[in-house]
Design a protein around this nucleic acid. Structure first.
Length: 572
RNA sequence: UGCCGAAUAGCUCAGUUGGGAGAGCGCCUGACUCUGGAUCAGGAGGUCCUAGGUUCGAGCCCUAGUUCGGCAGCCA
């Protein structure tokens, strides 16, 4: 790549070699230090997903580290698929990952790469190492390799094939590539140190034989490079300066460095950071699969999952996810972030942007006895008090309404400011109403509230200056739209899903009420809303139109509730 | 009984010439309000892992230890 396209000081750069270290996270601090020392004179990062699963919020953290650092320093950013294993990787995941990365807002421009495109170069370099006498073809079986690798506390045993002459290694390796040997028959190994305290240095395998088609290379190859061998080479080829990865690769760094040093090629710097964990959730491919296959969730984009596809369907915005990634910081400490932080991020974003609308989840009928039969009117309602540009809309009002069952108590407890017999409240954006009579059915269930309204209070204020303590949301019974609602809660009942009694597994902590499917009545203004449209249902929470919606019937996903101080009071 | 790494508020993180222990989220209280929302104000909460040492003075420097995490795929 040219220096000019990756130069420091590109438009928008906010960090450079002269930036004071104080206050920077340790990764940015390392980059500044490398710029000052002259180890690098530019910044180039990459996000290297393996196309074998869907991305989750933890990937978003890594992505915003990689992309964010490139942005901050005016450097370049590559999206690179690390597709070195043919048996696990599929085009479907490539497409899904590209969609997710684009959605969260990282821009790789034309810098989309595939590790598999470098296979030929990697092969040539492998030949180099064989010629240098630091790589050899090994005929040990997988079982023997494991056996002879030893344990962390015990040295391994050298392979009997370790001393194979260079010419024989060259011949065998070429024949491996030519397809002369079956899967697993031989490997190419680096000749390092079988007694190294670092297991990764005990003659790691560079190539394995796999007679399988590759999603991009087709049947061209039957030997495939291992991660440790491939990753540093990919970084080197692309001119990456800082190769950020998670803590689990810390023990792999000596090997990353070893390959590059042996080859004598351009040498990027690998730095590790702690991966993200979130309370009340799981974050691994394996567990997502188990949840999907076990029928606990409805797919990888189930709104209860913290996959990016799930969060998107739940109603999360890219801005909220980016904000979250910024808030949680970067460090090397193993950590578990509280879900409340993520929830705060989406509330903060949606509070500014989501139009407000009224919807009733659990209706109770209100009849305004002094409101003329057959009359209706339209109230002018502000769409978003936080955003004057959001405008207004008309909301129909009528003699028969629905309010939330929770908003009425026959025998109200202290500090309950909502409707009760003889009490007056305000219907939001409409009138004051007073409850005159409670109508019950034979079983004692309340079926209707008979109320009077004060025509003088149209719009919500009383000319005589009298105040009410409560304001309720409502919908006009005959004009409301009936819709499905999916009320999502934490997927797990405990902050740590692995916190289980002896003999039980994490499935025992799955929340049986992680989704409550119900119906609701929504004001007619939402008719025809497209999937993905987000609203605040006043006093209830933020909701997003689900892709299961049809022209006839909308489906709403509850993204997150509003903060609710009453529920805390009520618990006491 | 190996190697690598980590440790500051409930959680996540700042604290960089060695001199006042901080922020966000969470929690509590109050004000305000046509969302019990939003907003605003205030509060509680710390053996800076421990013990020694250097220093007039240590979260920060040195030594030893403790606890926790990672490493034994032909996965990444």
């Amino acid at each position: 790549m040219s220096e000019s396209e990756a130069g420091i000081g590109a438009p928008g750069a906010i960090l450079n070699a002269d930036t004071p270290l104080a206050g920077l996270d340790f990764l940015r601090e390392a980059v500044v230090t490398d710029l000052r020392s002259g180890r690098f004179d530019r910044v180039a990062t990459r996000f290297p997903p393996e196309p074998n699963a869907y991305l989750h919020i933890g990937h978003a953290k890594a992505l915003w580290i990689d992309y964010g650092i490139a942005q901050d320093f005016g450097g370049t950013f590559n999206l690179r698929f690390d597709d070195t294993n043919p048996s696990k990787e599929e085009q479907e995941f490539v497409d899904a990952i590209i969609e997710d990365v684009r959605w969260v807002g990282a821009d790789w421009g034309d810098r989309l790469f595939f590790g598999s495109d470098y296979f030929e170069q990697m092969y040539e370099w492998a030949l180099d190492l064989i010629r240098k006498g630091v790589a050899y073809v090994c005929d040990l079986t997988p079982e023997q390799v494991i056996e002879m690798r030893g344990k962390p506390t015990e040295p391994g045993v050298e392979s009997p094939y370790r001393g194979r002459p260079v010419e024989e290694n060259l011949d065998l390796f070429q024949r491996m590539r030519a397809g002369e040997f079956p899967d697993g028959a031989r490997t190419l190994r680096a000749k390092i140190d079988m007694s190294s305290p670092n297991m990764n240095m005990r003659d790691p395998i560079m190539y394995r034989i796999r007679h399988e088609d590759h999603h991009r290379q087709g049947s061209k190859w039957c030997i495939y490079p291992m991660y440790d061998w491939a990753h540093g080479l990919e970084d080197s080829i692309e001119g990456i300066t800082h190769s950020m990865c998670s803590l689990e690769y810390e023990n792999h760094r000596p090997l990353y460095d070893w390959f590059l040093d042996q080859l004598g090629i351009y040498h990027p710097r690998q730095i590790e950071f702690a991966r993200l964990n979130l309370t009340y959730s799981v974050m691994s491919k394996r567990r997502f699969i188990e949840l999907v296959n076990g029928g606990y969730v409805d797919g990888y984009d189930d709104p209860r999952l913290v996959t990016l596809a799930g969060l998107r369907r739940r109603g999360y915005t890219p801005e909220a996810i980016k904000d979250f990634c910024g808030r949680i910081g970067i460090a090397k400490t193993d950590s578990v972030v509280e879900m409340a932080v993520l929830e705060d991020c989406i509330r903060e974003d949606l509070n500014k942007r989501a139009p407000r609308v009224m919807a009733v989840m659990d209706p109770i009928r209100v009849v305004l006895t002094n409101y003329p039969e057959g009359q209706t009117e339209e109230m002018d309602v502000v769409n978003n008090p936080e955003d004057p540009d959001a405008g207004t809309r008309k909301v129909p009002f009528a003699r028969e309404l629905y309010i939330e069952r929770d908003d009425f108590r026959e025998d109200p407890p202290p500090k309950f400011f909502r409707l009760a017999p003889g009490r007056e409240v305000r219907l939001r954006n409409a009138y004051f109403i007073k409850c005159e009579e409670v109508v019950k059915d034979a079983s004692g269930e309340i079926v209707e509230l008979r109320c009077t309204y004060d025509p003088e209070t149209r719009g919500g204020d009383a000319p005589d200056g009298r105040k009410v303590k409560g304001t309720l949301h409502w919908v006009a019974a005959h004009e409301a739209l009936e819709a499905d609602a999916r009320l999502y809660n934490h997927l797990f009942t405990k902050p740590d899903p692995d916190d289980v009694d002896e003999g039980k597994d994490w499935f025992a902590n799955i929340n049986p009420d992680s989704v409550v499917r119900t119906t609701c009545f929504v004001e007619p203004s939402v008719r025809g809303a497209a999937p993905g449209t987000r609203y605040q249902f006043e006093r209830l929470g933020y909701f997003c139109v689900d892709s299961d919606s049809t022209p006839e019937r909308l489906v709403f996903n509850r993204t997150v509730t509003l903060r609710d101080s009453w529920s805390k009071i009520a618990k006491r």
